[in-house]
């Protein structure tokens, strides 16, 4: 049930809640800037998301406020931030599901650009290069004029399911291990490994995958706290994928 308190004024108009946003502000490029909380008040609107609220604040109250967005529909993963302490997408979070006091902060682990904006792209690129998250085939066999080998629809569906990851960084920010060990690949990396392991076009063996994630910065660093699984905005089956990868990699090591 919605917790919006709508008060009908005598004129028949509906008065929305007044929301207070407590936003962590900091500009790392400004030597005088110190991390501090700044509050903004905003009247709630029907169907308001956190992204809309932030746009309102930037438009009408504070043009210096920094935050990321592209698609506004939970597809690009750019607007991930700490919402009341937990990672989530601003564009997918409705204010009606929250209390009147909302705290927003940038995702930890990633390089801070300013205020709520972080450089997830840089981190994701590093992870992708390190784990070689692309289909590995023998170069000489690639023939672009030849039709691709057919894939069983069920398998294609399984791969697609894991490919839905938008690299928003929520899983990394929700991970206890990633807070302590900056070289940890996170659930996003392990999910990618599981995805390429499923793909019959990828000729890498389990031994090859072990070379990439068979250590404490990979799957053996994971403590199965599953914050990743619980906050993933795409609801990816991370718990199952990590356990699957762990079992496979332990078999290689035995």
């Amino acid at each position: 049930m919605s917790n919006v308190q709508k008060n009908t004024a005598s004129g028949g108009q509906t008065r929305q809640r007044m929301l207070t946003f407590h936003i962590l502000r900091y500009n790392p490029k400004d030597p005088d800037s110190k991390p501090h909380m700044q509050s903004y008040q905003l009247e709630e609107a029907e169907g308001m998301t956190l992204f809309l609220a932030l746009s309102e604040i930037r438009e009408h109250q504070d043009p210096t406020l920094q935050y990321d967005f592209v698609c506004r529909a939970g597809i690009c993963g750019s607007c991930s931030m700490l919402i009341n302490g937990r990672p989530g997408l601003a564009c997918r979070t409705l204010t009606k599901d929250m209390g009147a006091d909302i705290t927003l902060a940038p995702l930890p682990v990633f390089e801070l650009i300013g205020d709520l904006s972080v450089n997830t792209g840089k981190w994701m690129r590093g992870m992708s290069e390190r784990l070689e998250t692309w289909v590995h085939t023998k170069e000489e066999e690639v023939n672009l004029s030849k039709a691709e080998t057919r894939m069983d629809p069920e398998l294609a569906e399984k791969i697609y399911e894991l490919d839905r990851c938008v690299e928003c960084g929520s899983c990394v920010a929700a991970c206890g291990t990633a807070q302590m060990r900056k070289d940890f690949v996170g659930a996003v990396g392990m999910n990618k490994m599981a995805r390429f392991k499923l793909d019959p076009r990828d000729e890498r063996t389990d031994e090859d995958f072990y070379e990439l994630v068979g250590d404490d910065s990979g799957v053996f660093g994971c403590m199965s706290l599953l914050g990743c699984h619980d906050v993933c905005p795409k609801e990816l089956p991370l718990q199952t994928q990590i356990a699957f990868l762990r079992r496979k990699m332990v078999t290689i090591g035995s």
Binding site: G85, M180, L225
Partner: peptide, 29 residues
Amino acid sequence: VRKFPINYSQFKLYRAHAKSMQHGDTTMW
């Protein structure tokens, strides 16, 4: 002990993370 926070900075980060996440499994650890 390999999994323990190895210095105060790691401990502080994890504790703040657990406090802010309010996530059962994270706190239980």
